[in-house]
Structure formats: C-alpha cells, structure tokens
Nucleic acid binder design. Structure first.
Lengths: 199, 199
DNA sequence: CGTCTATTTGAATGTACTCAAAAGCGGTGG
DNA sequence: CCACCGCTTTTGAGTACATTCAAATAGACG
C-alpha cells in the first residue's frame, strides 16, 4: 500500500507514518471496469469510496426506470450513498463506473474505529460531510432556481473536464432533463442565446 | 439559563452539570418577533440557531426577487445557512421568523472551542451535519423526481403540523411552484386524483 | 361593514416532455 | 476502402404541466 495514496486521500491533515500504517490496514484498493455497478439499490452501503482515478456516478432509479444522476466523482473525490451510509440503511442509490476506475474502499466501522486512534480523522470526515452538505444545498438551489439552460451552462463551467468524459444522456440525467431537451439546450447555447447569471 | 434547555439542544448526549455550565456561557437566548429577518443575504453567518419554540424558514432570493424556501425549522430543530456557516462566507440565504420565536444562538467559534473540552459535542455536531446532509439529499431527489402534486402530498404527510402553521405561499415557495399552481394542486388532491407513490 | 391580504379561478403562454424518425459516429468485417 | 451495425445525438410534431397576468372570491381584523 502506497502511503502517498493515503496522504492524498486524507489531504489536508498531517499523518505520521504510524498513522498511515494504521489506515493502510483498513482501506482496500479496488480496480473496477467501466460499466460496473459497485453499489446497488437495496444493498447495504457500509463504505466510503475514494476515487484514485477514473469516474463514477451515483444515480437514483424511479419506479418507471428513469435515471437521475445525483453526483459525479472523479479523481480525489469521495463518494457513497450518504443516506444509506449515515443511517446504516440499505442503499437508495446506485453507484456506476463510467470509466475504468481505481477506488479505495473505507468501511464505516474502520472510520469510526479510527476516531480515537487518529483524532484528526474525525475532523477530516466532519469537513468532508460539511463540504458535501454544502454542495448538495447548492445543487438543490440550482435545481429549484435555474432553468435547464442555466443549469447546463453552470455545469459546463464548473466541470469542464467531466463534461468531456461522459455521455450526454448522463449529463441530462444530472440536470434533470431528457437527452432531447439537452440537445436543444446545447444548440441554443451554441447559437449564442446565452445569458448566464451565476448564483 | 435553564439546563433543561441545554439538554434539549444537545439531545442524545449525556452532559455533566459542569459541561452544561460551560455550554451555558456560550449560548444566547433570543426572542424574535414574527416577520423578523435574523440573517440577511450578504451578512456573515457565524451562528447556529436552535429553535426552542416558534417557526423559522431559510430562503433564497433570486435576481427577480422570487423566493425559494430551502428549509423550515420548528421546535427542537437547528438551522443556519450552512453554506456560509461552514465556509465562513457571507450568507446566500435569509432566515425569517414565521411566528414569534425563541431561539438559542451558538457561535461557530464557541462550537469549535468546545470540541476539546466536551468531545461529545464534536460527535453531536457531526451527527447533525450528517442528518442535514441526508435531508438535503432526499429533498434534492424529491425535487428532481417527483411532480409538484407528489411533492405536495409528501410535504403534508411528512410535516402535517408545519402545514397548518404557515401560509400557502410559503409552502409553494418550498415546493418550487407558484401559489396559483399550489392552489390547483390542492384542489386536485382534494377531489381525489391522488396517486401517492412515496420514494 | 370596509379594508387588506391571501387564495382561487380563468385564459393564454412557455418550457420541457413523449413518441417517432432521421442523422451522426465508431467500430467490424467483407 | 466501403458497407453495415449498434449506439448516441439531433430534429420534428404534438402534448402536458406549470407559469404569467389578470380578475374574482374568501378570510381576518379593526
């Protein structure tokens, strides 16, 4: 286990070699192929995933099998179904690999066990949860306030790199519109009917 | 300062009298009248608010002065503009009293200062942030997936008490629709065109 | 009773949706 | 190199849901 990876995972806190060794015992490197579902609705969700390389998404499946992408995760992001992870419930979301991906898996029990040994971990996790909370709140506001066109422009502006990696229908499902609507929105933006007013 | 209130604020953890006394030094009781704005967009947001009695809401104001209610808070809930609170930025949201309300104010500095003296507080806050994260994620999914009618039915089902307290136009702004649309939705629901499929 | 505010109703508009079909793109095999 | 196939994106036409603007009704309160 490469200690550089662990430093990258817990970027922002200073870990001793001893602490890194402790962490190394708890995390597991997993290589996942494009298309794989690493978490399925209904399953327990006892892990956090750190994305070392590649790209994943969480999505919700409604009862008409329509997909709603909740979150994309690329290099250095953490991802899970927080609803299930936090409450120890079974997953409401699915997590899918959009590219060949390398993730590091951290079980909740390990995380909680490390709080006493490595107090900084507790702060690190709290910061992560806070950041995630903020991003969800911003996303909620964006969804409520902005038109599809504004959301699309925000998205390409905020995630120019993700934008190139993934299929349009995944972007559409993130924006909460159909691929057809996205196509029309893009056409309109390209023709110059832009009027971006960022929140 | 009543120590029962503090036990209620930090419900779920066991505090010694000494710890309660420490906390008592940091919190401040505030009585606020209906209609008051306790946090305005653009101001710093260094406080968490615990709702002892009454009712508040956070809302976002877009550049056309349309209001979007993000969250209601009634007895025993905590509320703030988490985006500003977490990142020490100026507020994006406003917080308004919908009833005469008694809140207890806890500054972020006090919270963080207490982590070492009362370690349980750190866990308590982490739990709160996790719970809030989950509720925002659920709300995001609800907003993306459900129709206005379904969102309304979920709302009345989840918050039957809040529903009675507050104006329809506040509910509408929470659901992300106009008061006119809410009126039509309610009429339809009352006539029995319901088909509630909870997530 | 009158006034102010909140809610409901009506009519026209707009945005995104569905269904259906066409065009574009990338890889494989003849 | 071209033809074909499967998948993705785009385009078209009609529809549904929520919006806007405007006006009418209902409720609360002095």
């Amino acid at each position: 286990m490469n200690s550089l990876v662990i430093k990258e995972m817990f970027h922002g806190i200073n870990l001793t070699q001893q602490e890194i060794d402790i962490i190394a015992h708890h995390i597991k490197r997993i290589a996942v192929q494009k298309g794989c579902i690493i978490l399925s609705e209904g399953q327990p969700a006892p892990n956090l995933y750190f994305v070392y390389s590649g790209c994943l998404r969480t999505y919700f499946l409604d009862n008409e099998s329509k997909e709603y992408t909740i979150q994309f995760a690329v290099d250095d992001w953490w991802i899970t179904d927080y609803m299930a992870f936090v409450a120890n419930e079974s997953a409401m979301l699915n997590i899918e690999c959009l590219q060949d991906t390398i993730i590091y898996q951290l079980p909740k029990k390990s995380l909680e066990g490390m709080y006493t040994q490595i107090p900084q971990i507790e702060k690190f996790y709290r910061d992560r949860v806070e950041t995630t909370l903020v991003s969800f709140q911003k996303r909620l506001i964006s969804t409520m306030v902005q038109s599809a066109q504004e959301r699309y422009m925000m998205f390409t502006h905020t995630y120019p790199n993700i934008n190139k990696l993934i299929k349009n229908y995944h972007i559409a499902s993130y924006l909460g519109i159909t691929p057809q609507s996205l196509s029309r929105v893009k056409k309109c933006v390209n023709l110059g009917c832009e009027k971006l007013t960022p929140i």
